[in-house]
């Protein structure tokens, strides 16, 4: 199990590194999906199978598809690559890398010093090893149920607020793009391609 965690973690880090350094947006998106899939595996190893599945279904499977849709509609074409090469000179990376490295060093230092409250580094290793063997199946089933009970119990208000947030996002996204095509005559379709009855779009036969 621990080996799985390290492999998945390495894949996630490498894929994320590729995301921020690609020139073509689609390639970066696909690497991001790979990163999310690797993270889903990490979630599973951490004893959260429900969240692992949710990560793939919602994040990698819906949110990233939304990104893909938007990218297809903002189709940049050949000019994109030349522009990106122009923008991403090596010099631009120096200062941000230094700052980020400083932040990362701080985080790693804190964690290595046994930064999680209530346990030392040695105690952590022992607890991790003992829990590992017992781990998966029975625990995980209880976890899924516990999440459901928590969502409908103490966190009920949060669920309602989240649904209102999603409604607000839906309305906002629709309102922002409802008259997108009246701006100019570029590629087909408004952003909300799922809306029926928007027959103004798609210049040819639907």
């Amino acid at each position: 199990m621990t080996v799985l965690f390290y492999i998945a973690g390495a894949v996630a880090v490498i894929a994320t590194g590729m995301v921020i350094t690609r020139r073509k947006a689609i390639h970066a998106l696909l690497y991001l999906v790979v990163s999310f899939l690797a993270l889903a595996l990490v979630f599973y190893v951490l004893g959260a199978p429900f969240v692992a599945a949710l990560e793939v279904i919602v994040y990698a499977g819906a949110i990233m598809v939304l990104f893909l849709f938007a990218l297809m509609l903002i189709d940049a074409g050949r000019a994109e690559e030349a522009r990106e090469r122009d923008w991403m000179r090596p010099r631009a990376w120096i200062v941000p890398s230094v700052l980020s490295a400083a932040l990362l060093a701080e985080v790693v230092y804190l964690l290595a010093r046994g930064g999680v409250p209530g346990r030392t580094a040695a105690g952590a290793a022992a607890a991790g090893g003992a829990a590992g063997v017992g781990g998966a199946a029975g625990e995980a089933a209880a976890q899924v149920k516990a999440v459901g009970i928590a969502l409908f119990g103490p966190y009920l208000l949060g669920v309602e607020l989240a649904s209102i947030l999603l409604l607000a996002g839906l309305v906002a996204a629709h309102h922002l793009t409802v008259d997108l095509d009246s701006e100019d005559g570029e590629t087909a379709g408004a952003a909300d391609s799922g809306a029926p009855g928007r027959t103004r779009q798609k210049g040819g036969r639907p």
């Binding site: 689609i26 696909l30 599945a53 279904i57 990698a60 499977g61 849709f69 899924v144």
Partner: peptide, 24 residues
Amino acid sequence: LNVGLLFFLAMSSLGVYSVALAGW
């Protein structure tokens, strides 16, 4: 898997990519 059904849903979510990417 104890979340077998969710795994199937996850895989079908990934299938969307194939179609969209093939088109694009």
